[in-house]
Amino acid sequence: MSTPLRLVIFDVDGTLVDSQGDILGAMRHAFGAVDLEVPSRDAVLGIVGLSLPVAMARLAPDAGPAVQDELVEGYKSAYVDMRAKVGAAQSSPLYPGARDSLEQLHATPEVLLGVATGKSKRGLDSLIKAHDLGSFFVTQQVADFHPSKPHPSMILQAMADTGVDPENTVMIGDTSFDMEMAQSAGVRSIGVSWGYHPVSALRGAAEILTDFAALPTAISRLWER
C-alpha cells in the first residue's frame, strides 16, 4: 500500500523567521503617527499572526475604525520602508535549523509543504525571494484572501489546493492562533517554543518543539500515531 500524500503547513513570523524587530519598529511608527501610546512589547507580539485590521482593533479598541485604518496603513508603510533599508533576509532572518528542516521534508516524496500566514502576499513574496524559499511551498495562504486566524480558511484552502485529507495534514506554529486554527480545521498541530506566544498558550499541540532539528522526527511520530 502506497504512502498517502501529506501536507505540512508552516506559520511564518515567529515560526520560520524572526521578524520581531521590524514588527515592533513598524508598530511604534504607526502608533506615534496618530499620537497614540505605543503598546507594550508583549501586547504587540501577542497579536502576531492576526490579520492587521484585527490586530489593530485589539491593540487600540477605543480608537475607532478610522484611526484603526490609519494604524494599519502606517504599519504597512513603515514595515516596507524598514525592510527596504536592510533587506528582508537580514531584517527577518530564518531561525536556526529552519532551512535544513525544510530541505529534509521537501526531499520526502510524499510530503508537500505550505504556509499559512497573517502576512500580505507582497510581504510573503518578498520574504520568500530574500531567503530563496520559492521551491519549497506548493501552497501559500496569506491574509489578503482569508479571514484572520484562527478562522480555518487558510488550512482548508491549503488542503483543497493539494488534495490532502485532514488526517494527513499538520500545522506548525508559535501562537495560540495557529493551534486554534488547526483545531477548527480538524488537523493536528505542532507548537514551537522559540516564537512569540508563551508555550503555555499552545494548547492542543501534539508536541512542543524547542529545536527546529527535531521537527522532521516529530512529524514522523505524528504520522505513526
Rank of each mutant, 00 (worst) to 15 (best):
A43R: 11
D174R: 06
A143F: 02
E73N: 13
G21M: 06
A201P: 00
A214I: 07
S101Q: 11
I9R: 03
L215S: 06
V8Y: 09
A116G: 15
D144F: 07
V72N: 02
A201E: 05
V80S: 01
M27G: 00
D144K: 12
G14T: 14
P152V: 07
R122Q: 05
D11H: 12
D11W: 13
L102D: 02
R41M: 10
R188A: 14
E103L: 14
D125I: 04
L133G: 06
L127R: 08
D161A: 08
L209I: 06
D100N: 10
A205K: 05
D35N: 07
E103T: 11
K76G: 05
Y95M: 05
A160H: 11
P147Y: 10
V8A: 06
V192I: 14
G25S: 13
R225C: 00
G134V: 11
P53H: 07
L5A: 15
M27K: 00
A107C: 14
P109D: 15
Q157H: 13
A60R: 08
A218C: 14
A57K: 08
P216D: 13
P39C: 00
S40C: 11
I23W: 12
S126P: 00
T175K: 03
L105R: 09
P216N: 13
S184Q: 14
Q68S: 10
L113Q: 02
A182M: 01
L127H: 07
Q104N: 09
P53Q: 08
G32F: 01
T3I: 12
E207V: 11
I190P: 12
A107F: 13
G173I: 02
L50V: 01
I47K: 00
V44H: 07
G191Q: 06
G134D: 13
P93I: 04
V17H: 02
R188L: 13
S2T: 07
R99H: 10
D35L: 06
V192Q: 08
L50W: 05
